[in-house]
């Protein structure tokens, strides 16, 4: 693969952005890239990035599948809030909040509720035929209200060692949150790339009618991706609420749908549906998380985070836009004409 081919790869610019952010942070604070072992756990900047990006990665993975079917899911943030609210209220109400069985039962209940939301979204999109952006807007609006209804408008806090492990624990020296995200990523990659599911999702995204005529159950596939997306958002909600050990219905996962869509787009998956890239989404999530971390390290005021984010988004989107790509390609062709003759 020559240099030109690498530069044209769709993950080239996002990876350049990631490396630049890491290098800039390392130059400013040389200890940033150091990984040390303390109490048998790994510590350091890169580990921190992995741990912090787990929430966004989980949400973005589900979003990738939904976007691949030409859809979009705006309700993920609200699902995170609901998941945290259900799990924590149940743990708080139980007589033994520290028991593993209590925590597992609470998480199972929350997952069931999240799946119900996913089934509802999928039903509206796949069966009733409502545009995804409107169908999921319903839960984006109502979801936080429901989460507040569950917690009674309070911020529910609990003390429960097993639940705390989800976000703050370590296993084999690595943060549990990152391991969960990695596991989900692995399973999703296996399911979509080693079975026909990925191809089916892409075919539905490229042309639903044609794939239906070809015998693909478009309706079932679309329904499934919304359920998967809600399930992943639920796991992200566990990590988020375990991180602060509180269910904050107003702020848990606020605007994460936008960050997740951004991560997917930066990763090169088109919002028009069809081909999707899980690796791209991974890179996109890492870019956004690193961006947020670097801002504090580089001493840029925290208030400017969204300004900085906007500039990065605009830059990446412009570089990926068809017009700029076309310009760059035609300029390259002018500089070095391809000698191969193509018969007419």
């Amino acid at each position: 693969m020559n240099l030109g081919a690498i530069a044209r790869h769709r993950l080239f610019w996002p990876l350049v952005a990631l490396v630049l952010l890491l290098v800039a942070s390392a130059l400013k604070s040389p200890a940033f890239l150091e990984v040390t072992v303390r109490d048998g756990h790994l510590f350091g900047g890169p580990v921190d990035i992995l741990r912090r990006s787990s929430v966004l990665l989980l949400v973005a993975l589900g979003m990738t599948l939904v976007i691949a079917t030409r859809g979009i899911d705006l309700s993920v943030g609200a699902v995170m809030a609901i998941a945290g609210a259900v799990a924590l209220s149940q743990i708080a109400a139980s007589p033994d909040p520290g028991a593993l069985s209590t925590v597992l039962l609470a998480m199972a209940t929350a997952l069931a509720v999240a799946l119900a939301v996913g089934v509802f979204n999928g039903f509206l999109v796949a069966v009733v035929g409502i545009q995804p952006i409107v169908a999921t807007l319903i839960f984006m609006t109502a979801g936080r209200g429901i989460a507040m209804l569950i917690t009674g408008g309070q911020i529910t806090t609990v003390t429960s060692a097993p639940y705390k492990t989800i976000a703050s624990g370590y296993w084999l020296g690595l943060p549990v949150a990152a391991l969960i995200a990695a596991f989900v990523f692995g399973v999703t990659a296996l399911l979509t790339r080693r079975t026909a599911l990925g191809v089916l999702i892409e075919s539905v995204g490229i042309n639903p009618s044609a794939s239906r005529l070809a015998g693909v159950r478009a309706r079932t596939i679309i329904w499934t991706v919304y359920v998967i997306c809600a399930a992943f958002a639920c796991i992200a909600g566990f990590i988020k609420s375990s991180d602060i050990m509180a269910a904050d219905s107003n702020n848990a996962g606020l605007f994460i749908e936008l960050d997740a869509i951004l991560a997917v787009v930066i990763g090169g998956t088109s919002l028009a549906g069809g081909k999707f890239s899980l690796t791209g989404t991974l890179v996109g999530s890492l870019v956004i998380t690193t961006l947020t971390l670097s801002i504090t390290i580089l001493g840029i005021p925290v208030n400017a985070v969204s300004l900085f984010k906007a500039l990065v988004v605009i830059a990446v989107c412009l570089l990926q836009s068809p017009v700029v790509q076309h310009r760059m390609r035609s300029r390259r062709r002018r500089v070095a004409p391809v000698p191969v003759e193509v018969p007419a």
Partner: peptide, 22 residues
Amino acid sequence: FEIQPFIATLAAMFLARGLCYL
């Protein structure tokens, strides 16, 4: 630049919010 309206206005949203804080 043929960027989808959803993404373009999302970027504008971040931009405007960031400028607010400044």
